[in-house]
C-alpha cells in the first residue's frame, strides 16, 4: 500500500508524456482492491500465527503423540485422534451421500425438469434451506437420525452426525452444481443433439465433463466446511473422556475436531491453551489440504476439457 502514492505519481507523469488524461480514480481503485485482498490474507496470517505461537509447545514438543492419542483429562497426555477420526468419517459420509444425491438433483432440475411454477418453488426452497443455521439441522438430526432411527445409526453416533451433515450441505451442493451446469453453453448441447445423441448421452459426455470443474469446486468446498460445531454437539459429539472413537466405529460415540476444540477451550487456559491452539492448527491444515486438493483436481479437469 505504501507504493500507492508513488504509483499514482507515476501514472500522472506517464499520462502527461503520452498526452492522455491521467486515470487517478482508476489507479486509486486498483490499490483499494489490493488493500481488500491484503486485509483478508492478513487476518488469516494473524490467526495462524497467533495459534501456532500459542500452541508451539505442543506443535514442536509432541505433535506426533498429539495426533495419535485419545483424549485424556491430563493435558500433557491428551490428543485429538478421536476428533480427527470423527472429522474424516463425517467427511466420507458427506462425500458418499451428499455429492451423488446433490449432483443428481441438480442434473434433473437443470436438464430434465420443465420450468414450471413447481420447479421454481422447489428451487427457491433449496436456496432457502442453504441459509438455515446449522443448529436447526442439528435438532433435525437428533430427532431423526439419532433418536427415531437409532436401531440403524446406533444412537448419537458418528453415522448420525455424518448423515446430518450430508443433509446440511445437500442444498449447497445442489445450488453450486446447478450453477455449473447452467454455465455450460447451449451450443454444446445443440451440437450433441445435432449429431443424433440422446439426452442422456449429451449429459454424460458433454454437459457433465464441461461442468465438472465447477461442480467440484462447489462441492468439495462444502465438504471442507467444518463450521458446524453446534450441530455436532446437538447430534451428540462427546464433550469429555470416552473410550472408542476409532476409524470405523460408525455406530459408536464420537468426537469431531470442531467440537473437540470447543471442549478444550472450556478447560483451564494455563494448562490446556497450547492443546486448544494446536488442535486449531491441525484443523486449519486439514481444511487447507482438502481445499488445495479440490483446486488441483479442478485444474486437471479444466485442462482436459
Amino acid at each position: 500500500m505504501a507504493a500507492a502514492p508513488h504509483a499514482l505519481a507515476g501514472e500522472v507523469v506517464s499520462a502527461r508524456i503520452q498526452g492522455r488524461r491521467a486515470d487517478v480514480g482508476g489507479t486509486l481503485f486498483k490499490y483499494a482492491l489490493l488493500g481488500a485482498l491484503l486485509l483478508t490474507i492478513a487476518v488469516l496470517a494473524v490467526l495462524l500465527y497467533s495459534q501456532v505461537d500459542r500452541g508451539s509447545e505442543v506443535l514442536t514438543g509432541r505433535l506426533g503423540d498429539f495426533i495419535t492419542s485419545k483424549y485424556s483429562s491430563l493435558s500433557t497426555r491428551a490428543g485429538i485422534k478421536q476428533g480427527i477420526n470423527g472429522t474424516l468419517t463425517i467427511a466420507a459420509f458427506v462425500i458418499v451421500i451428499a455429492i451423488p444425491l446433490g449432483v443428481g438433483a441438480a442434473v434433473y432440475l437443470e436438464e430434465y425438469a420443465q420450468k414450471t411454477r413447481l420447479t421454481r418453488f422447489i428451487d427457491v426452497n433449496i436456496r432457502n434451506l442453504a441459509g438455515v443455521p446449522s443448529v436447526v439441522y442439528g435438532i433435525l438430526g437428533l430427532a431423526i437420525f439419532a433418536r427415531a432411527l437409532r436401531n440403524f445409526t446406533g444412537g448419537a453416533s458418528v453415522m448420525a452426525a455424518g448423515i446430518t451433515l450430508a443433509v446440511l450441505v445437500l442444498p449447497i451442493v445442489i445450488i453450486t452444481s446447478a450453477e455449473a451446469i447452467r454455465a455450460v453453453p447451449d451450443s454444446i448441447r445443440e451440437a450433441g443433439f445435432g449429431v443424433g445423441a440422446t439426452r442422456w448421452e449429451v449429459i454424460r459426455s458433454h454437459v457433465l465433463p464441461y461442468a465438472l470443474p465447477g461442480i467440484l469446486t462447489g462441492t468439495v468446498l462444502s465438504v471442507a466446511r467444518p463450521s458446524a460445531r453446534p450441530l455436532l454437539i446437538v447430534v451428540g459429539a462427546k464433550t469429555g473422556f470416552f473410550t472408542g472413537g476409532d476409524l470405523g466405529d460408525l455406530r459408536d460415540n464420537f468426537q469431531a475436531l470442531p467440537s473437540q476444540i470447543y471442549q478444550f477451550s472450556r478447560l483451564p487456559e494455563s494448562t490446556w491453551g497450547a492443546n486448544t491452539a494446536a488442535a486449531i492448527v491441525v484443523l486449519l491444515v486439514i481444511v487447507l489440504a482438502v481445499n488445495s486438493a479440490a483446486i488441483l483436481l479442478r485444474n486437471r479437469f479444466e485442462k482436459k476439457r
Partner: peptide, 23 residues
C-alpha cells in the same frame, strides 16, 4: 476424466467398507 471421478468415489466406498470390516 469420468473414470478419475468414478475411481475417487469408489475408493471412498472402499475406505468405508474396510472401516466397517475393522468394526
Amino acid at each position: 476424466g469420468r473414470w478419475t471421478l468414478l475411481l475417487a468415489i469408489l475408493s471412498v466406498f472402499a475406505l468405508l467398507a474396510s472401516a466397517c470390516g475393522d468394526d
